[in-house]
Structure formats: structure tokens, C-alpha cells
């Protein structure tokens, strides 16, 4: 595929943007992408892409929609800026955009949403928060390494419902993730529409 800008070099950077439900694709070569200020960080761009795909298919709840209108009083961050650069502006953003970020955090961390591990200054500095933290994190501890057999997959199928977070939705999201990884944007768009329809 040719680069959209210089029309000579091969396009190696593929961008999918979804604005108001409209999908636009651009295909650029490395050097034009750099000129356009698009830095290529392989991990990041995947997460970014996922973030935007998922954000597009998810009908946000009231809180989520409210967040999308907000900007951070400390640093001026908005969800729109975040989608572009994939970097947050200050620690406060994690509170302000909690709902919107949750989806992205879950994706990036294999479904986990709660910290497990050390706290600042070593354990000795604040015993209280250690206790509360281990209590809350042990609830969510799951063994992520298990591999589902075909049968189990089927049973999750039959138990499916259209609710967000249901096994069927989770599975579609997994397929969506795979499609994005494979750069199969057609399939990704289809899966996204399916997910949309379930909500």
C-alpha cells in the first residue's frame, strides 16, 4: 500500500480514527508519519488504537459521558487529548476520567483493576494502608494463566447476555483485540458494531 501523503513509499503506519462514529483511515510511510508528528511506539499505539475502538463501541453511562465533557482543573487534560497522545497529564486525571480509563486499564492489564504489590517507602511506613490494600486486592486475585478449553468456551457462549462485562461481550472484545493486533480493521469494525448492537 502506498503512503497517502508522498504517494511513493510503502505505507507502514496505519491509523484508524473514529470521530462521531465515522471511521477514517490513513496509511503513511515511516518518514511522513514522523513529519506529521506521529511517533511510533509499538506498545502504546496498540493500546491507543484499542482505547479508541473500545471507547467507540461502548455506550458510556452517565458518569462516563459526563467525564468526556470534563477537563482536569490541575493540568487541563481532556479525554480527547488523551486519545491523541495516550499519556495523561497529572495524577488527578485518574480520578477525573475514572470511568473512561477503566476500560483501557482493564485491557492493558489482563482484566486487573486493583494494585497488588509494594507501597511507597517500603512496608514499614504505613501499616494501615498495607492491610486495607492486601484485603482489597486479594478479592480480585485471579490466576490469569489458565487456558480455557473448547468446552468451557462453549459454556460461556450459552451463558451469554448482552450486559457489559458479560462473557459474550468479553469474548467479542477479545476477538476485537486480536483483530486490531492483526491489523484487520474490517473485522475489527464488524466486531465493534456487534458489540454496539448488544448494548
Amino acid at each position: 500500500m502506498q503512503c497517502n501523503i508522498c504517494k511513493t513509499r510503502t505505507a507502514t503506519v496505519h491509523l484508524t480514527e473514529i470521530i462521531d462514529g465515522q471511521r477514517t483511515e490513513s496509511h503513511l510511510c515511516q518518514s511522513c508519519a514522523q513529519k506529521e508528528g506521529i511517533t511510533i511506539k509499538s506498545q502504546l499505539s496498540l493500546n491507543e488504537l484499542l482505547g479508541s475502538l473500545i471507547a467507540a463501541h461502548q455506550q458510556p453511562d452517565e458518569q462516563g459521558r459526563g467525564e468526556a465533557e470534563k477537563s482536569c482543573p490541575v493540568c487541563g487534560m481532556t479525554m480527547e487529548i488523551f486519545r491523541k497522545q495516550a499519556l495523561l497529564g497529572c495524577p488527578k486525571d485518574y480520578e477525573i476520567f475514572e470511568r473512561n480509563l477503566q476500560v483501557i486499564i482493564e485491557k492493558a492489564h489482563d482484566g486487573n483493576l486493583t494494585h497488588k504489590g509494594k507501597i511507597p517507602g517500603g512496608i514499614s511506613t504505613s501499616t494501615n494502608s498495607v492491610e486495607s490494600q492486601t484485603a482489597s486486592s486479594s478479592d480480585t486475585t485471579k490466576d490469569k494463566k489458565e487456558i480455557k478449553t473448547e468446552n468451557e468456551m462453549d459454556s460461556t457462549h450459552s451463558a451469554s447476555s448482552g450486559q457489559a462485562g458479560s462473557p459474550r461481550v468479553k469474548e467479542l472484545e477479545k476477538q476485537l483485540e486480536q483483530a486490531v493486533r492483526n491489523e484487520d480493521y474490517e473485522l475489527a469494525a464488524k466486531l465493534r458494531d456487534q458489540l454496539k448492537a448488544m448494548q
Partner: peptide
């Protein structure tokens, strides 16, 4: 944050 751990510029 006790819930999210060390807060980083990129959620990843």
C-alpha cells in the same frame, strides 16, 4: 493511590 498503585503518565 491505594487502589491503582503507583500512578504513571501512561496507564499501561
Amino acid at each position: 493511590s491505594p487502589k491503582l498503585g503507583f500512578l504513571t503518565a501512561c496507564p499501561t
